[in-house]
């Protein structure tokens, strides 16, 4: 009974703060609301005995929201905590589509005859997931690792202000290259 009460409270917090992300007046508050939603879901994961995954979800998302707040301050050129904003397009149809999909998913969740639970959880789930990752399910790790590495390279290439073919000559302190066409070979 207690677990149902706690789960319901966490569910209300997660969904309400998720809605608040798109309703509050400033981007900073939206970031905090999203962080609260993730923390609530992380605690729900801990309730499912997924301690390791719950904790890394909370840690990762809190850090990500901090980075997101920095990005907003960098790119919005204003104090995001003080500046009301509403920058939406196609608001009505987005709400209709999201509501329709929610009704569809909720109907599926409630009407499908889910099978009974089979098997029991390992006594130490963190050890079990570690052994699976380093043992029989190593292909998952071998696939995710190069994807993460490729992401690092791609993010650096995209975010790097100097392109592969932007020639800067020997004056590395110049503000921008004087190429006739940006990214071109000519100088």
């Amino acid at each position: 009974m207690l677990s149902i009460i706690v789960f319901s409270a966490l569910a209300i917090i997660a969904v309400a703060s998720g809605i608040a992300v798109f309703r509050v007046d400033s981007m900073a508050r939206a970031t905090y609301a999203l962080a609260v939603s993730f923390v609530a879901v992380g605690v729900m994961l801990v309730m499912f005995d997924l301690d390791y995954i719950g904790v890394i979800t909370i840690l990762m998302m809190v850090m990500e929201m901090a980075i997101m707040a920095i990005y907003m301050i960098m790119f919005m050129g204003m104090n995001p905590a003080l500046m009301p904003m509403s920058m939406v397009h196609n608001n009505r149809w987005s709400a209709i589509l999201a509501t329709g999909i929610f009704l569809l998913l909720a109907a599926g969740a409630l009407l499908v005859p889910w099978p009974a639970r089979s098997g029991t959880a390992a006594p130490d789930l963190t050890v079990a997931v570690g052994e699976a990752l380093m043992g029989s399910k190593m292909l998952v790790m071998l696939t995710v690792s190069p994807i993460l590495f490729a992401t690092i390279v791609a993010a650096l290439v995209l975010a790097n202000p100097r392109g592969r073919y932007d020639r800067w000559g020997d004056n590395l302190k110049r503000v921008c290259p004087d190429d006739p066409q940006q990214g071109g070979l000519g100088k």
Partner: peptide, 14 residues
Amino acid sequence: AALFCVGLYGALSQ
């Protein structure tokens, strides 16, 4: 599903 659809609304409308 509620979380997913709130996110979907945001991804489509923002």
